[in-house]
């Protein structure tokens, strides 16, 4: 019997702390540069395009499309062994950022590049939430 192992929890940096705080409130927020008006990711003190220090944590729709994806068939961490096979995707958020996450509520063989997905705030060990994505439902 393999002992149950919890999946690793995110260890936020000073810069990413607001991202994770928003996720706990079921909000997906990315930094939007005040100068060029676009999102940037990963979290940073300056916009990597124009080096502006002026930005805000903007809430996004949580919708996007699959830019690319991979299917884990082999275990790299005991916490995920029972989930095999599972899909990790790079999701292009509607508003522009690319975010890597796990897809849920989908058969691995049904995932396609370009597929519409939406965020699903999912509780993990310890009660914290992480933003997984699932096939998008109909537009509200």
């Amino acid at each position: 019997m393999t002992p149950t192992v919890d999946p690793p929890l995110p260890r936020p940096s000073v810069e990413s702390e607001p991202f994770w705080a928003a996720v706990q409130k079921d909000e997906l927020r990315f930094q939007r540069c005040a100068r060029d008006g676009k999102l940037f990711f990963p979290p940073a003190a300056r916009c990597p395009r124009c080096w502006s220090r002026e930005w805000s944590w903007d809430r996004v729709s949580g919708r996007g499309t699959v830019f690319s994806f991979v299917t884990f068939q082999r275990s790299y961490h005991p916490a995920f062994r029972a989930s095999l096979p599972y899909v990790v995707a790079i999701v292009e958020i509607e508003e522009g950022a690319r975010f890597t996450t796990r897809l849920t509520d989908v058969r691995v063989e049904d995932v396609r590049v370009g597929m519409a997905v939406e965020v699903s705030f999912t509780p993990v060990a310890g009660g914290a939430k992480i933003p997984l994505f699932r096939p998008a439902g109909p537009m509200p």
């Binding site: 999946p7 989930s83 996450t101």
Partner: peptide, 26 residues
């Protein structure tokens, strides 16, 4: 990585390169 990877089950160089292969296939 301390975040934006392991919590989603993303580990290792194989996956990173596989993203490229998948994108190229598509």
């Amino acid at each position: 990585a301390s975040e934006f990877g392991p919590e989603f089950g993303l580990f290792g160089a194989t996956a990173q390169h596989a993203f490229g292969a998948r994108r190229h296939m598509a």
